[in-house]
Design a protein around this nucleic acid. Structure first.
Lengths: 232, 232
DNA sequence: TTACTTGGTGTAAAGTATGCACAAAGTCAG
DNA sequence: CTGACTTTGTGCATACTTTACACCAAGTAA
């Protein structure tokens, strides 16, 4: 370590994680209400320091696990934020991630860094200030999701294993913030042979029940290896 | 700072910059030959610690400036690399950037962190091991460039202000690693009205001289604000 | 049995992308 | 000065992709 000046070790590195969920046609984000200074009482992204012997991805996964109990969740690094004044207590550089989880299946735990955690509708959040530069981070992560979802079949990570095409369409509409044509959407989705019809129907709905589908990941990967390129 | 444990300040944060240039139909990267341990004698990406009062983008720009004398260069953050063992002397997390420069206009300076710096053809580099995890970083940055260039008109950053359509085509072919059809390429490029014909011709070539064009950034921005979306 | 709600389906027209070959404009060598 | 050489610049026909659009079907509830 001799060549390193000690000055370069006065910076702390953290991870912040924008955890997206989808429920009742709304995109949601899992936020914590800050209980300590600074920014007490404001919503903030869940995040923590990266441990000395921990890879960055692992830190992001740990935060998610502590908060939700979930493992093996879709996780993607977006960008690193490190403006000099972004943390009032010192130089803190943070690596931003987003993750996609199936909300309804798991409750949210309180944890060491989260006195109170809650799913908040993205739309409600549009004009609420978050702690630190978390507005900016959230926006960057949402944009990353928007782009990513057009070109990788990751939407399914937000839905239960069995879903209807209408649910899938609503999900895409929420992410892309655009309306999609039903017939064209279904045509496109079904032309990709990895979204398979389960020959099952919804139950307990007060109208014509929809057919259920599932995403067949191994088929998708086979097509990719044959040169297929997902594009919505 | 009371709430921070000192443990979290044992990590150093650096920036590494993949500087791309283009000359004679080849994509090049500006690398430095390491003069000190570890990895003495290997090629490495130019990089440095982020100073205490310096934003991350500023650190990337500084490295580029020290090495080339250039300012206001195209610079984009790609991803942060921080695997626990990536630096043999301690925990070093690095934020990777790529930048695009017009190679031929400026020579390369030696500098504090670069005893010897040189433009290396990307193709020659394919099977040469770089220091640290710089192979991986280079690959990630090249992929980022590949994707970016399809959707933002950044190719021009690598060309002189006046260029021929053949030069532009060769540039895209080098980045995309694919051959493009001459007529279709020209049709597409010229249909975007921000690549303007200067009514000038090449001089001193031993064949029919090509017309010169320039990229009109303000026209491009006007079109973007009217809803135009670059796509190659 | 009727009203209500959401599901599921096809076609025509417009626009976009692709594949392809030859004359034009200059330099250079003899 | 002419012919060979090199690279530029151009258009059309075809296949493919995208878009716009409306009505019957299947179930529940009153």
């Amino acid at each position: 370590m001799a060549e390193f000046s000690q000055d370069f070790f006065k910076t702390a590195v953290t991870v912040d994680n924008v955890i997206f969920g989808f429920d009742e046609s709304d995109l949601k984000v899992l936020l914590i209400k800050r209980g300590t200074e600074p920014y007490t009482g404001l919503w903030a992204l869940p995040g923590d320091f990266i441990y000395a012997q921990e890879n960055i991805d692992a830190a992001a996964a740990r935060i998610l696990h502590e908060l939700t109990g979930l493992e093996k969740v879709y996780l993607e690094q977006v960008r690193t934020f490190g403006a000099v004044g972004r943390h009032p207590l010192g130089r803190v550089i943070t690596v931003a991630y987003f993750s996609l989880v199936k909300t309804n299946r798991h409750d949210v735990h309180a944890s060491s860094f989260a006195q109170k955690a809650e799913w908040v509708n993205l739309s409600e959040l549009r004009h609420v200030a978050l702690a630190f530069d978390h507005d900016e981070i959230l926006e960057a992560c949402f944009n990353a999701l928007k782009q990513r979802v057009r070109v990788r079949p990751i939407g399914f990570e937000l839905l239960p294993p069995k879903f209807t095409l209408t649910e899938l369409q609503h999900l895409y509409e929420a992410i892309l913030e655009a309306e999609l044509d039903k017939r064209n959407f279904r045509k496109k989705i079904l032309s990709m042979d990895f979204i398979v019809d389960l020959n099952e129907s919804q139950e307990g709905v007060a109208h014509r029940p929809a057919r259920l589908y599932e995403f067949d990941k191994s088929k998708y990967e086979k097509f990719v290896s044959e040169g297929f390129n997902f594009e919505l």
